[in-house]
Design a protein around this nucleic acid. Structure first.
Lengths: 238, 238
DNA sequence: TTCCGTCTTTGCGGGCGGACAAAGAACCGG
DNA sequence: CCGGTTCTTTGTCCGCCCGCAAAGACGGAA
């Protein structure tokens, strides 16, 4: 729906800052061309193999981008937080979305159709430049995960995966850092390439050692240093 | 070295076509700004963590891009063939190369410094657009491999990896398709996330069944259909 | 040819982690 | 408060694949 029709917290519009060096009039132009989308928890912004007709910037909330294999197994490609782009494929030549974007908390996003964002990018080259930077960062990120998958054992992969969640969505609480959205054992399994059973066992062992504190769809890291030790080093003895 | 100083097969300069919609004068300008690099087999165009000061398009030959883990284990990120870009990170904001590019056959590449390619991209927006397309394709490609690593068994991963090599560098020969550059069992292992022992065993079994024919650093696919069946379907019987 | 280094094959044992199963715990709706 | 659903824990078993080891094959150099 057009932006004008909604009463919005102006702060949500700051998400457009993600485009980088836009002057105030450029921002206004970009916002005028945008549409607004609210996504209830569980709702999907778009689905895998659907025509890539829009590009988004998340204003608030949290999404997960997933892919399903032909056999029906699901994996999590990445989580998207506020001021992050998603549906980038719509601006870089892809015809269909390679994955599905699902809200894991109630979320709000700014959207542009493929044609609109294309026209904007013509006028403001900074947009394309910025999108390219983002894509470059994600490519490197994905390559790192690929390297982890190829070379590391399950426990280290889980540690890396959780460290990444902490960096992206960690919130300081008393006595630790809480992952700031609901995340199940199954989610962590799909993020690290294992099964929820193995994740559960591994995390239980960590809880035993005081590294984490567990809850239903909740995870608090009590000892971030220990997590790093598991992820990076794996010293077999003390 | 400047292009003028070398006697070159003009066909090699066609690699600049990879930039997409450049008019003839644009091509000339791009070529005038380029420098030329020959890479002997085993020579490196750049190394991991080195400052990303140049961007390249391969004219002829073949490179592999690898990463090493802190523990010293090596993995192959991708192979680069003629008319493919590499060192893209130099045009999209990265400070250092995320991997090492090594020639696996004698190769020739056109190179541009970061500043030069930046200036060119200013003048010819098609260059940035095209680079973005390439990055998008690679991101999806890497995500596919990640999905394979998370969900598939070793045999299927090897089949997928070899199918990818066939698509990228397969050459029709009598009775099959040959991978057109030297590739060892160790290489395939680093590409598919397993060990050279397991690769050797798997390929031997396939050879037994007539799917492939093996040689020293050489691989011919005799029955591409069977390879696809292994990669996609995995019917337990027959 | 012979030597030598690199690449490849093959055997064997053990362990990580996946598959299956079932019970327990937390949340939600009525 | 209660039943149903979803999420989580925990146990047991077993198979895939890695690690180790050693021999075999191939190609290049002298």
């Amino acid at each position: 729906m057009p932006l004008q029709e909604k009463q919005l917290d102006p702060a949500l519009l700051d998400a457009v800052d993600v485009f980088g060096g836009l002057d105030p009039s450029g921002k206004d132009e970009a916002l005028a061309a945008a549409h607004w989308r609210k996504l209830e928890t569980g709702e999907r912004a778009f689905e895998q193999d659907q025509e890539a007709d829009a590009f988004y910037v998340l204003s608030a909330g949290r999404l997960k981008v997933t892919q399903v294999t032909p056999e029906g197994q699901e994996i999590i490609i990445r989580y998207i937080g506020p001021k992050e782009m998603f549906g980038c494929v719509a601006v870089c030549g892809g015809l269909t979305y390679p994955g599905t974007a699902t809200a894991v908390t109630d979320s709000w996003a700014l959207g542009w159709t493929r044609a609109t964002i294309g026209a904007l990018a013509q006028t403001y080259p900074g947009i394309a430049l910025n999108a390219m930077r983002t894509m470059g960062g994600r490519l490197q990120d994905t390559q790192s995960r690929l390297r982890e998958m190829q070379t590391e054992r399950v426990e280290r992969r889980i540690a890396h995966g959780i460290a990444r969640l902490v960096a992206q969505a960690g919130r300081r609480v008393e006595g630790g850092i809480l992952i700031d959205f609901p995340v199940s054992r199954q989610d962590i399994a799909e993020l690290t390439g294992t099964t929820l059973h193995t994740v559960s066992r591994t995390l239980s062992a960590w809880q035993e050692r005081g590294v984490v504190e567990l809850g239903r769809q909740k995870l608090t890291v009590r000892d971030p240093h220990a997590l790093v030790v598991i992820a990076e080093d794996l010293p077999l003895k003390e």
